[in-house]
Each structure stands twice: as C-alpha cells, then as structure tokens.
Design a protein around this nucleic acid. Structure first.
Lengths: 127, 127, 127, 127
DNA sequence: GTGGTCTAGACCACG
DNA sequence: GTGGTCTAGACCACT
C-alpha cells in the first residue's frame, strides 16, 4: 500500500504525508479509520521510525489525523475538508507550470490533452 | 532583469538557472549573447559570487551556456533545443499535478480556466 | 584508500571523481555500496568538505552515485554502464595522443610496448 | 592554417603552441621559416594579441622559435630535436590512458586497432 | 550523524 | 576584467 522512493530526492516524510492524504482523498482511508502504526509502517517500507513519526506529527498538526495514546492514529472527520482547502495554492502552482510550458513553446492543445488524460486517470480510480 | 527571492525556499542558484533559461526561451538572450559576469551578477542581486558560479557551472554542464575563461559566459547555439527537450518531463509533471487536483475534487472547468489564464499571461510577454 | 595530490595541477575534486570511478570499475565499490561521507572523506584526505561535496554532486549528476540526504551517498546500479559509455570518447582521445606521438617520430613498436605494459598493470590489480 | 576553438576549454595560447609545434613536426614549418606576426595571427583567428604573444613567448623560452626584434619570429634549428625530447612524458601519459581504458573493460584488440588507425593517419599527412 | 546551500574571502590562469 | 578552484565556517533539513 505505502511506498517510498529514497532516490527521488523528495523527503521521505513528505512522501508519506502525500500518500496518506491521497488515500484519504480517494476514499481508501475514511474518517476514524486507523492508519498503520509507526513501527509497523517503518518495518514495511524500511525507513527509520523517526521519519514516520515526523510525518504523523505533521499530519496531526494539520488536523488530518488524530492520535490516541496507546491506541494509534486515526483519520479525522474534517480531513477531506482540510485537504480541499489547499486547492487554491495548487491551482496557482498549476498556472505557473502551464505558463512555463507555454513559454517553452508547448502547444495549447498538448496541455489540454494532458488535462483530459489526468481526469480519465481519476475516473479509473474513484469507484 | 534578474531577481532572487531569498525567502522562497527555492535555492538561489536554482532561481538563477531558471531565469537564465526563461530569458533564453522568450528570446531576450540569443545564441552567443554574453550573460552577465559572475561578479557583476553577484553585485546586482546581492548574493555571493560562489552562488552565481554554481548556477553558471550547472548551466554549462547542461549545455545551455558555454564559458570562456577570461572572456565570460555565452548562450550556446543549442540552448533552445536543449530546453525544449525538457518539455516531456514537465508535461508528465503537469499531468500528476492535475491528477492530484482532480482527486481533490477540483472541477475540470477550473483547470481549463487556469490553462487559459496561463496562455494569456504568455501572450503579454512575447512580442 | 583515497589519495589526492595537491601539487599535480589537476583539481582536487576531479581527482576524487576519478578515484571513485576507478574503484567502481575495478569492483571495489559495488552498486548500493555506501561511499565515505563528505565529512569523513574530508578529514581523511585533509581537504575542505566543500571540495568533496563538489565531487559528489558531479558524480550524482552523472548518475554514478545517488545521494540520500541524512543517510549518505551510494553507488548507483547503472554506474558501471554509464562509465563504460565514456569509452568511446577516451578511445578518440587515445587516437589523438598516439597520432601526436607518431608525428613526433615515435616508433610503432614503442607504442605497442606501452600497450602491453598497461595491460600487464591491469592484470596485477584485477583479481 | 591556424584555428582555435574557444569552446574547447583548452587555453587558447596552448592551442596555438600545439599547432605551431605540430606544423614543425610534420615539416610544414622548417628551421628559419618565419611564423606569422603577432598582429596578423591575432586578426586571422580573432583573438587578443596578448594571447598570441604569450604563446610565442613560451615557444621562445622552450627554444622552439627565436624572435628577431623588428623582423619577427622564426623556427629554431633545434626545434625538432627539442620537441622529440618530450616523447618520454607523452609515452607515460599514453600508458596511463591505456591503463584507464583497460580497467574500463576495453579489449586489447580495440586499443591495437586504435594504434593502427593513428599511424595510418600519420602516413596520409607526411609526404 | 547525513547531504545541501550559502557566505566571505582568497588565489590562480586566461585575455 | 573574466571564469575556476579552494578554504573556513556557518546554517538548514533530513534520518
């Protein structure tokens, strides 16, 4: 279920955060679902438990998950709402990226095809 | 002409690389044009010469510029071609980003508006 | 294991790059092996950590090693392949050098002896 | 006749030295022949006269050429002998290069073919 | 502890 | 003046 790529350059704890968030957004993880314990996750993906802890702590701070001492971590009820709040930032990031591509001479058509592809890919996953 | 934002989190040398590449793509810098010397650039944007040197060295390795010790750095003839080669990577990056937005429930229309905006912004710059 | 000659005129960082590559080619360093940390290497051979960093950064860009922040630098799986790709360039360099010697009146026999010596030297190292 | 490549990385004055030496070795320039004046050479190959001067000064120091104030520079009688003295250094350079290729897994046959090619190329030039 | 970025200041070779 | 290398020492993020 969870995977990390140490060679990608992206911090491992960020990769974990992103994956947890993705799983929540596509409905694999629902409110009050338990997410893997720090130790089990660390063993599965072969990373330092501190790294997992850091990811969980940050998710907790964001309000995406809540931790119950002695029981584990669980998806919060507001998780989806919080995640959807971030869209504005991502949209401006998107605009910058498209702008760069436009400058680089990429055709508008190509970008539009890209949009279509991405939405098709979404259709395949969401049940 | 050149600007850096120390607070952006993005490494300064990367910002310089990006700006040089942008100027080449929009035609402000043409093949065999001299780009600012390491020292003059360092004074202009108030960063250490080593940081500029690092940016120029990477641009040289990429084949975007060529440096002639004692004379300066110049835009290579193949610069534009090399930069356009990178479009494919950026397109897949774009697809990922749109996919994330789609998962997050962003409407296709919103994305399409974003595309339009970005291409308008380009139209304003290119003469 | 690693040695640098400050007086040789060849940049220190290049000497380090060459030695890492040599160790990979003769099999002393294998894929996913950890290479010495920037700081430990700097202490061993008494050069500034920045110089080591520069060497490692270039090796990373070439795809010879990959670096995992917080963990260290490791030999990439494709390292040997990449290094062998450079042989063609070296062969043309070799042809030029022999050509110069030929022009300078060096006998073909002398060159051939040189070839034999070099391959003997290799035989001593490879087990 | 003379050519320089500013993009090669090799210092221009070195390129000039090498070319003068080559022309002497293949007999295009013979003892007491006049070599181009600093100014005419500088105009022909579009480099700074100081650079040419530096090359000529070094050739003078080596005893390859001698300069007659007001008349120009001329190939010395001992030029060929002096140049042939350098062969030992080049031979050890050659051995190193072949050694590197051997380590890199290049077949002995390939190196030998290279030797043959280089000597053929020489045969075409020397009349 | 690791790698990565940056500053300050120096020296060299080249033109 | 130019680019290139190097040192010394600092700070950051990541594990």
């Amino acid at each position: 279920m969870f995977k990390v790529d140490v060679m990608s350059g992206q911090p491992i704890y960020e990769q974990i955060i992103n994956q947890v968030e993705q799983f929540i957004l596509i409905g694999v993880l629902k409110p009050d679902d338990k997410i893997p314990s720090v130790r089990s996750m660390a063993e599965k993906i072969l990373v330092n438990p501190n790294t997992i802890q850091k990811a969980y702590t940050e998710l907790d701070h964001k309000g995406i998950i809540y931790s119950v001492p002695g029981r584990g971590c669980f998806v919060s009820k507001e998780a989806v709402n919080i995640l959807n709040m971030n869209n504005r930032e991502k949209l401006s990031e998107l605009e910058n990226l498209i702008f760069e591509l436009a400058i680089a001479g990429v055709d508008k058509k190509e970008v539009e095809e890209c949009v279509i592809k991405a939405f098709e890919k979404k259709g395949e996953i969401v049940e």
